[in-house]
Simulated assay, not measured.
Amino acid sequence: MSQEMNYSAIVARAWSDPNFRESLIRDGQTTLKQLGISLGEGVIVKVVEDTESIVHLVIPRRPIDISDDDIRAIINGNPEIMKITPNQVCTGPLSDKIC
């Protein structure tokens, strides 16, 4: 991504502007480009909307620096290996304090 995406501003605009929301859902790539947000070659944007009865869980791509042993530790409840929030994946010691 060539520009920092202000995720909060995009979501707030989608909440307040039904035409923008529909445009974002229909063709997120073009809509973001119109905002000056250029994504890399070959990157596909898929915009979905949660409702009262449908919630989407986004699985982030696996960080290249996380081992299978680290993943097993995370599954077993060790929060110091990695913390995942909707906007970022933090890895390393004490990741819950830096994320």
Rank of each mutant, 00 (worst) to 15 (best):
M1L: 10
S2W: 10
S2G: 14
S2R: 12
S2V: 06
E4K: 13
M5R: 11
Y7S: 10
Y7K: 10
A9M: 10
A12R: 09
A14F: 01
A14D: 00
A14T: 04
W15E: 15
F20A: 03
R21I: 00
E22P: 02
S23Q: 13
S23D: 12
L24P: 03
I25V: 09
R26F: 09
R26L: 07
D27G: 04
G28C: 00
Q29F: 07
T30F: 06
T30Q: 15
T30V: 11
T31D: 01
L32P: 01
Q34Y: 07
L35M: 13
G36C: 04
G36R: 13
G36I: 06
I37H: 08
I37V: 12
I37D: 00
I37Y: 15
S38Q: 13
G40Q: 13
V43Q: 10
V43Y: 11
I44N: 11
I44W: 09
I44H: 12
V45W: 05
V45Y: 03
K46N: 12
K46C: 07
V48Y: 06
E49I: 03
D50I: 00
D50W: 03
T51V: 06
E52A: 10
V55P: 00
V55M: 12
H56E: 05
H56G: 05
V58R: 09
V58Y: 09
I59V: 14
I59T: 14
P60H: 06
R61H: 09
R61W: 08
R62T: 13
P63L: 07
I64D: 14
D65I: 05
D65V: 03
D69A: 15
D70V: 03
I71W: 10
R72A: 15
A73W: 01
A73H: 09
N76D: 15
N78C: 02
P79I: 06
E80T: 14
I81G: 02
I81Y: 02
N87E: 14
Q88W: 11
Q88D: 12
C90M: 03
T91G: 04
G92A: 05
P93N: 15
L94P: 00
L94G: 11
D96W: 15
D96K: 14
C99W: 05
C99K: 03
